[in-house]
């Protein structure tokens, strides 16, 4: 059930897991829109020639996944800040999943804090972040 008010949120609540689209076509669409179009994001072979394990999901797309996950959970949420740490790259065409947990609630200010983690299919943390979000009263 989607969250519509801060009263719906409990400390420690887990957001529904989100499995974003890391497929090549989707990443291409993103990098063109973002002005980041380049072979290291759109061409596995070219990325390997650079010494990378494959084409990379750009860090800014990982960050975009985190924001999208929050809106899927709470469509009216106003994101105040997303701080993202790129621990290791996400590889294009490799599945990943995002988990999130509410770590703080300030009901008076209408604000919640959420810790978010992106893991690959091996369960390795690749990206993590913290978001500060405002929700309606």
């Amino acid at each position: 059930m989607a969250v519509s008010s801060i009263r719906d949120v409990e400390f420690g609540a887990e957001l529904p897991v989100f499995e974003p689209d890391t497929g090549l076509a989707n990443v291409k669409r993103f990098v063109v829109a973002a002005g980041w179009n380049g072979p290291r994001f759109t061409d596995h072979e070219a990325a390997r020639k650079e010494g990378l394990p494959g084409a990379l999901v750009p860090g800014i797309l990982s960050q975009g996944y985190l924001a999208a996950m929050i809106h899927r959970w709470a469509p009216e949420a106003l994101i105040q800040n997303v701080d993202t740490v790129f621990r290791a790259p996400l590889i294009v065409d490799e599945p990943c999943s995002i988990s999130g947990v509410v770590t703080d609630i300030d009901e008076e200010a209408g604000r919640v804090e959420i810790d978010l983690t992106i893991t690959n299919a091996k369960g390795e943390t690749r990206v993590f972040g913290t978001a500060e979000v405002k929700l309606p009263a």
């Binding site: 689209d21 993103f30 829109a33 797309l61 999208a68």
Partner: peptide, 13 residues
Amino acid sequence: QIVDYAEACGETA
């Protein structure tokens, strides 16, 4: 550009 960016991220709002 905005729609492509948003949908690629998985935005539904």
